[in-house]
Each structure stands twice: as C-alpha cells, then as structure tokens.
C-alpha cells in the first residue's frame, strides 16, 4: 500500500516479528511509549509498565499468548507432564498435531534431545543442528498431523483424531471451558509470543488513531480483554485486575499463560534468530516433510 502511496489502513494488528520487520522497513510509525500511551493508574509511565515487551519502537503490545499443547484427558494412556512426552510414543501413544513450521517444533525437539534450554539457539544455528532437530522429529513423524491454521488442533482434539497437539493457548481455553471438551492443558515449555498494534506510515487519521490506541491499551482495557479469552495483558499493572470470564464467570487468572503456575518452564520466541534462519530452515523442513 505504501509503495503505491495509498494507505487505506489506520491501525494494524500484528505479531511482534511482523511489527519489527515493518518498523525496520519504515512501513510502520515509531511511537513514543510514554507520550502516546497511557500511564498506569498509579502513575508508572507506559515504558515501564510494558517493560521488555516493547520489542520494537513501532510495536504497541496488547497481549501475551503462547503456543502450547492440549491433550485428550480420556484418550491418553497416562497424563503427559512434560513437553518431551510429545516425543514419547510409549508413554502417550496415538496421533499428535504439530504446526507445519520449523518454529517451536525445532526448539521442543532439541530440548527433548537433551539440549540445555539456554543453548537451544546455539545448537540449532550450528552445523548439524537442523539435522539433529529433524532426527528427533523423525521419531514421531508418522504419528503427526501437521496443521496450518490455529483452529485445526482444537478441532482434531475434539474429534479424537489426535490425542495431543500444539496450538495457541486461547484456542485451547475456549475448547476446554466454552465447548466443555475433555481436553487438558500441558503448559510445559510453552513458547511466548506477543500480539499488538502498529500504526502504518501514511495513515490520514493519525490523531484519531493515537487517541484510540491510548484508550484501547490502557490498564483497564487490557485487563478487560482477558474477560473473553485467556491471553495475558501486556501491561504489568493489568495483571492484578484480570477478573472473571464475561459469560462463564470463572476466574481467568489460572488460565493465563503468564500465571506463575503455568509459566514454570517457558521460551520466548527468538525474533532475531528466526529472522535470519526462517527461510533456510523452512525449506529444509519442507524438504524433510516431502520425503
């Protein structure tokens, strides 16, 4: 849109990695967090309230979501307790669904192949790292259904097509709590990612957009979002205000990916690493899949 000089969007919902790239290429407007975003109710400036989650100068974080596993409580032989149970066909026999992407799967594969959590990206980037990850994934390859859309794993779980599968935690929440399916959460080594707003460069309604963003990302609004789906608010000050689900009336705090009980072992999506390696690794991953 920018190339042809016709920007028709005023505000765009983007994941952090896309926001970073758009910012680098000058297609998104940089923001001044303290000036453009509302401070916390106790006066803490927005830059402190969002903290590390302001991963790019153009990115206005809204929610923290994670990619993690759900399993059929009635169909597993024994309850999975670790992400490595995904690779354990004896403990949990049956089909599993994984995203048709190297991202996350490579991390989990290396982790379960004995790589220390803080060395995962060193090993993956070094020679032989991809082969090692693919070899580990190869041990379950014929038991995997690969998904491309976030809705697929909840559907496959509900149909009983798979006994466990990865997807976004909010999707699992709704299939468990709203649809009442016999599905359990496996939070072990969930991978965090961020979703938020960017303001495209060249928008014609900048003042109105900024006013909206300031309102939509203040402490109360971010806390309110959690009434509808179990995605964590990006502000620290919103966390204590997370209350009950709007329809079900259940306490949302234990369903948040950021809840201390759920967040014992976590990974943060490594933007820099994947920006370099996504193209190359995806080709190799796809070639491996096609064999």
């Amino acid at each position: 849109m920018n190339e042809v000089g016709k920007v028709t969007w005023d505000l765009v919902d983007a994941v952090a990695s896309d926001a970073m790239r758009l910012c680098d290429e000058g297609l998104a407007l940089p923001i001044n967090a303290d000036k453009d975003l509302a401070p916390a109710p106790d006066g803490t400036p927005a830059s402190k309230d969002f903290g590390d989650l302001l991963v790019s100068e153009c990115f206005i974080p809204q929610i923290v979501y994670s990619t993690t596993f759900g399993y059929r409580t009635d169909k597993v032989k024994s309850k999975p307790t670790s992400v490595c149970d995904v690779f354990d066909l004896e403990k949990v026999p049956g089909k599993r669904s994984l995203e048709k992407k190297p991202i996350n799967n490579f991390e989990w594969a290396l982790l379960c192949d004995g790589v220390a959590p803080d060395k995962i990206y060193d090993v993956m980037g070094a020679k032989g790292g991809v082969e090692r990850a693919l070899k580990k994934l190869g041990t379950i390859k014929d038991q995997v259904i690969w998904w491309t859309k976030g809705a697929q794993t909840p559907q496959l779980l509900a149909d009983g097509e798979v006994v466990m599968g990865s997807t976004y935690n909010g999707r699992l929440f709704s299939v468990i709590e709203e649809e009442k399916q016999p599905i359990g959460m496996l939070w072990d080594w969930q991978v965090f990612d961020l979703d938020g707003w960017i303001i495209p460069k060249g928008t014609k309604n900048l003042d109105a957009v900024k006013k909206f963003v300031r309102f939509a990302t203040d402490t109360q609004r971010l806390a309110d979002q959690a009434k509808f789906i179990s995605y964590g608010p990006a502000r620290k000050s919103s966390a204590p205000m997370v209350g009950k689900h709007a329809k079900l009336g259940i306490d949302m705090k234990p369903h948040m990916p950021t809840d201390p009980k759920n967040a014992k072992n976590t990974l943060l999506f490594n933007y820099e690493f994947w920006a370099d390696h996504q193209d190359d690794f995806t080709e190799r991953f796809e070639a491996w899949l096609a064999k």
């Binding site: 680098d24 820099e272 920006a275 370099d276 390696h277 193209d279 190359d280 690794f281």
Partner: peptide, 8 residues
Amino acid sequence: PGMSSLFR
C-alpha cells in the same frame, strides 16, 4: 542465512 541480521 545470516545476512538479515548482518545488515540489521
């Protein structure tokens, strides 16, 4: 691979 981060 690696050129993206080099230039960034």
